[in-house]
Write a protein that binds this DNA or RNA. Structure first.
Ligand SMILES: [Mn+2]
Ligand SMILES: [Mn+2]
Ligand SMILES: [Zn+2]
Ligand SMILES: [Zn+2]
Lengths: 150, 150
DNA sequence: ATCGGTATCGAAAACGGTTTTCAGTGGCTT
DNA sequence: AAGCCACTGAAAACCGTTTTCGATACCGAT
């Protein structure tokens, strides 16, 4: 994916004053650009490192704070890697979906499937559970990493 | 860890014909009993607390160590809750499976389903990924907790 | 421009689960 | 009895993340 997603619904900040968060500040803008460029899931610390590489001066605390808000707003997806570290990636759709993620480089593809949604709902109901929710993550080697490994 | 690459002769507990693995020590035995009694996923600290409640003197470090080994051996299942804490539960089958877990009390049911296995494999393959793996967790309210809540 | 109020920043400290360290203990074999 | 060595556990380290709190940036009002 190329950068510059432009056509973003835009957060009325400078426009209407009392704006929603994110955007508006130099730090939020810089973070937004990095997120638009990173192709896969990255840790907060990796994102912070990328900001510094670009010459942006943003505190790690600020990175964490923005990622948390973006995550709550559904603008970024999160997942935990095997070490327990939280990884972030810009979200491309507002619909419920899951990810196929490369365990080597973090690149990921958003996928959806009624099959797994139905299955989750069914087995939970059969077990007598209500208010059902689920987490599904698929990991593998992306084409590039698989090629590089052979 | 004390690896020592050489095969560990620590299998002598089995030599006494006592049964499955990890055993032999007072601590391992006590942990085994607690795991057998706990009906759902519990944190290492909860398990440690339960041991103390029963009057067993076992160090928290030892609890972590045994749980890690049991987990690697497939004798206990693990999952991470929303706070990132690792939860443990005795595993009842050696076959690949998933869990429907109560987000209120931790009680859980083991389930399996070819539908979700096939779906995961399919979407990953369609995305060009290889060496595919997946994690699936279903959460909800168990009958008891649902009743209690209304 | 100046002032004041408020949202945001960020370095440093705190937090909390987990792992590592390392001196001691105790079970087994000889 | 002696020795080997896996096992133990209190204390410290680890490390990602959150909290604290004084500093700074932003903005409207004067
Ligand atoms: Mn997404
Ligand atoms: Mn499965
Ligand atoms: Zn890759
Ligand atoms: Zn329950």
């Amino acid at each position: 994916m190329t950068s510059h997603s432009t056509a973003r619904p835009a957060q009325r900040t400078a426009a209407t004053g009392r704006g929603t968060r994110v955007r508006g500040t130099r730090q939020a803008e810089a973070l937004s650009h990095v997120l638009a460029d990173l192709p896969g899931f990255s840790s907060a610390q990796d994102i912070h490192a990328e900001l510094r590489r670009r010459g942006e001066r943003v505190g790690l605390t600020t990175v964490y704070r923005h990622l948390q808000v973006l995550s709550e707003d559904g603008a970024v997806d999160t997942l935990r890697d095997e070490t327990g570290e939280t990884l972030y990636r810009r979200c491309e759709t507002s619909a419920h979906h899951h990810h196929v993620t490369c365990r080597s480089c973090g690149r990921s593809v958003e996928v959806e499937g009624r099959a797994v949604e139905r299955w989750a709902e069914r087995v939970a109901t059969e077990a007598g559970f209500t208010d059902v929710d689920h987490t599904v993550e698929i990991f593998g080697l992306c084409p590039d990493c698989a090629r590089e490994r052979s």
